[in-house]
Amino acid sequence: MQDKILDKSEVDALLERLGSEYDVYAPLRDQQGSVEWAALDSSSDLVWDFSNTGVSPKRFVFPQTECMMRFNNRSDDPEGMIMKQEQGLQRQQALLNIRPCDAKALKALDSIYCRDQTSNDVYWRDKREKTLYVGLACKSPCPTCFCTSVRCGPHYEEGLDILLVDLGERLLVRTLSEKGAELASNLSDAPDEAKQQAAQQKEEAEAAVRSQVGLENIQSRGIMELYEAPMWDREHESCLNCGVCTYVCPTCHCFDIQDETQGEHGRRVRNWDTCMSWLFTYHTSGHNPRGTKKDRFRQRFMHKFKYMPYKFDVIGCVGCGRCTQSCPVNIDVTEVVGEMNEPDLN
């Protein structure tokens, strides 16, 4: 790890260097005034003062629709009906100013997508390896942020190649990987006062994360104890199963696989899916193991806060608060998780 310094007026030089090797994406202000991920054309478009994007950047590694393979849809052709793997990403990509929570989310999902030799998702891995993560530390967390409760934080470094800390006119450039170090190799070392300023900013940002939730009781409780808790009867009631929480979530990673054909062209694609849908688990026989709204609501929280920690030792949440922000019926993730963690579960 090295701390370098970069004057904001010199960001162009860095971008030029990036652009020669990478397609560069960053959170940019759109015509409606909201900040969302888009391709970066000019450094003047960069936004330094934003909370976070409405939708997470997971699509750069896990596109909403992704072609996995193609086939010739003709059974009279000797090459027909045989799946051919789609090529990987043609050019490397850089995610500039990604929030540390969003980078950590992708890192957490590696334990599922690249679990072992047989569960080695080549599509995920291809894009993970061809992506550079240049993080931007959070200055002013949202009221819905609770990253410090879930092994993350406004300056969290895991999953990043570089962490930028906005010091006003300058950026502290912290290199966190070989790729990052190489990119920042021609920058000068950060002076001590800049390092101190960054450290102070980290402390302040962490203290500004007001929303907190405990997980210790969730961890110590048995699966069935949590699963059968009466709280689910109350908590699920207002949920519409609309699935927007899973859409905006940086760690929601469930998908569907579908075949599409047009004439003799065919392809197999995967699409984002949602555990909020009844169809997600519906058997051909008509039986549905998660047939009720309560079942599906409970699954989402159990998956992130019990099953994933139990199975992979990662929390399926980075505390970005997007689900709370976008929920049409004001379900607050920290409230539900708080209930799961109550000393007297009821």
């Binding site: 599922i112 997508y113 679990r115 047989t118 569960s119 998702d121 699966i223 699963y227 990673h253 469930c254 998908f255 569907d256 696989i257 995967r270 899916d273 555990c275 997600f280 688990t281 519906y282 058997h283 051909t284 193991p289 699954q299 159990m302 998956h303 019990k306 099953y307 994933m308 139990y310 199975k311």
Partner: peptide
């Protein structure tokens, strides 16, 4: 057991029974 499946390799998220 049987459950609705897609990926078959423990990633796509629908066939879980608890954490498995």
């Amino acid at each position: 057991l049987e459950n609705r499946m897609k990926c078959g390799i423990g990633i796509c998220g629908r066939c879980n029974v608890g954490p498995h």
